[in-house]
Amino acid sequence: MIKKLKRVIQNIFSRIFKSKKHIKLGFYGPPNAGKSSLANKICKDWLGEEMSTVSNIPHETRGIIEKEQVHIQHNGKELTLNLIDTPGIATKIDYEEFLKFKMKPKEAKERAKEATKGVIEAIKWLDSMDVVLIVLDSTLNPYSQVNITIIGNLAARNIPVLIVANKTDLRKADIKKIESAFPQYRTVGISAQKGTNIKQLYEEIFTLVKR
């Protein structure tokens, strides 16, 4: 109870003084949704460099990656963000899944071990975020418990959330399904890889931060 009250007070204070500090923008979501691709796209747009490595093998990001002082502009307004790319949150990790990507057993076991630590880290960092982009693969069913758990935890902490429906360039993409799964949140459809609709994403980030 005291812990909860302390968090609420901290949140109120951090909202009041938000304009004076850098805003921590977290990228959260399940593995392989495109969190790192999106973080890279934003970083490349404003810093001219990428921040994370990407791969089609799940759990490529196995530790928190932070890029500080990313100044973004939109319609004459400016924001300074600290981008925080987090490992994909999962409820199961089986090293045998990595063998399908022609990984050696030793390497696959090491990756699985690091991935479990990554999930723990990502959960631990939830408390540190000012705003969060939930990145979802728009070709997949959004009604997964991991998505619901992440969003539920952010709602309980009063952290503003924007849902990013990624991979809209793919034929199976269904933004409407994501919108109907989480009707209480704004959803923006993008393709981080192709750079589609990124301007609208920036607009939504500005709106989210002002909230």
Binding site: T91, A112, K117, Q145, N153, A156
Partner: peptide, 28 residues
């Protein structure tokens, strides 16, 4: 389960993953 209980369950699950235990599937 409350959201904090769910995230704690995921955290503890990750801590216990080994050769035999690969994790959980959950649906509320």
């Amino acid at each position: 389960l409350a959201p904090n209980e769910e995230s704690e369950l995921i955290r503890k699950t990750m801590e216990q993953i080994d050769k035999k235990f690969k994790g959980i599937e959950i649906c509320g």
